[in-house]
Design a protein around this nucleic acid. Structure first.
Lengths: 251, 251
DNA sequence: AAGTGGTCTAGACCACTTC
DNA sequence: AAGTGGTCTAGACCACTTC
């Protein structure tokens, strides 16, 4: 682990276990340089991570402070939410405050129903977003993911065949991302997303065990490897009252 | 403007005007150091900005490349969308590709209808999120914002009275954020958000000129000054087929 | 072996806040 | 005047890719 990540993780731990309380002043940058035996720029990068997470705020001339707790976790008791970076984790659910999330795939509470898994030529729009030709083959799969037997989201995903050889239906019941990252060794680096509210169609309503017209949170998304290659185009629709998306937005 | 920001802006300009095309290789870090007469870490920070925006990707050992264009602007032709950081800009609409947005308040196309502007004691939940006591006074306002006469979003906002003296109803027809930043001199630094899909109530439907039950994109949001003080709690509900939210998510 | 980007140092210099 | 965080340098060292 890199030094600035280690320092950020260490400070985050102090905040989460209560040794640093809301509005507490952190040690100064120079003190932290001595404590961790690093240079200023390394402490600054650690701060950047925690500012990005919404945990601290710095004031030039006066110091760096723990933000007053803004515990927005699971306010409607839905028991499930999607974090900002949830797509890399696969499906997640709320674990504790501060938006910290953990995978629960091994606990058996999260299940998938696969409605389609095939190799097709993609729609023109999908081909364009993936940067491939319309006659290049892609995997297409459609699945519903459930938390404790309750359908949460229906996803439709396209991935270029060339990029991801050997994908099998059985992987769809687990995390496709871990297959890509661990088995194939690619590094997923970013997602471009558009978020909308839409009404459930009849088919979606049936598969999601809800009524047609029910509000769904739609995520249209393109995933990229760290070399900038688009590896995935996906549209997922989450049942409005069973999922939500969290975000920390630094200006 | 800081050096790394200037370099990032310069490279972004080259990408947008086509001098750098998708998949083109940028000059190496060392070359850019010479071109701009800066050190490596400054070039790296410029790269970080552009990676964050989804414009470039670096590959250790081989170079830095322009991402293949992922033009997702206004795919449904709604003519209006909310960018990731739109809340600081106030209400915005699509201007060009790559998610670049501009304010259009001076063109008269964006209008507001204010349904309520009063000083009240906040609900318990709001007080908690703002870090104030339930008997501390807050401004409360509810308004509908329209693009070309068409209602897009209904907002309900609470702001602590103590923090923002002198707010008048007339400001609500312009941007409250510019009042806070320019007139009062505070610096807005971040927002915590939860995004959901919900159904329009009868009252909302009437004010938004749509049908009850229509899917709305809800943003529940807390805004912070750069010293970590929460200055705003707001819930806004955007008509599903008239607005969308964009996002670039770096893992 | 040569070239690439990423991390990190030790310290200069600056803007801003506090006293 | 002293203390705070933010930017930036010049360069070392490293991990990785390309040839």
């Amino acid at each position: 682990m890199l030094k600035y990540q280690a320092i950020a993780a260490d400070i985050q731990r102090s905040i989460e276990d209560g040794s640093l309380k809301p509005n507490d002043k952190l040690p100064t940058v120079v003190e932290l340089c001595q404590i961790y035996d690093v240079s200023k720029i390394t402490v600054k990068r650690a701060f950047d991570i925690l500012v990005e997470k919404g945990l601290i705020a710095s004031r030039r001339g006066s110091g760096t402070f723990v933000k007053s707790s803004q515990d927005m976790s699971d306010p409607r008791g839905t028991g499930a939410y999607i974090k900002g970076d949830a797509r890399t984790l696969g499906f997640t659910r709320s674990d504790r405050a501060r938006g910290f999330t953990v995978e629960h795939q091994d606990e058996g509470a999260i299940t998938s129903v696969v409605y389609d898994f095939s190799i097709v030529t993609p729609p023109e729009k999908v081909a364009r977003h993936l940067g491939i030709q319309p006659d290049d083959f892609t995997y297409h799969h459609c699945r519903v993911r459930c938390l404790d037997e309750r359908p949460i989201v229906i996803e439709s995903t396209y991935m270029p065949l060339d990029l991801i050889p050997g994908l099998k239906k059985s992987q769809l019941y687990k995390s496709v991302y871990s297959y890509i990252q661990e088995t194939l060794g690619y590094k997923i680096s970013s997602f471009h997303r558009i978020i909308r509210a839409v009404a459930a169609t009849e088919e979606e309503a049936e598969r999601l065990q809800t009524a047609p017209g029910t509000p769904l949170l739609e995520l249209e998304q393109i995933g990229f490897f760290d070399d900038g290659t688009a590896f995935e185009y996906s549209v997922s629709r989450n049942v409005g009252d069973r999922a939500e998306l969290r975000d920390v937005n630094v200006v």
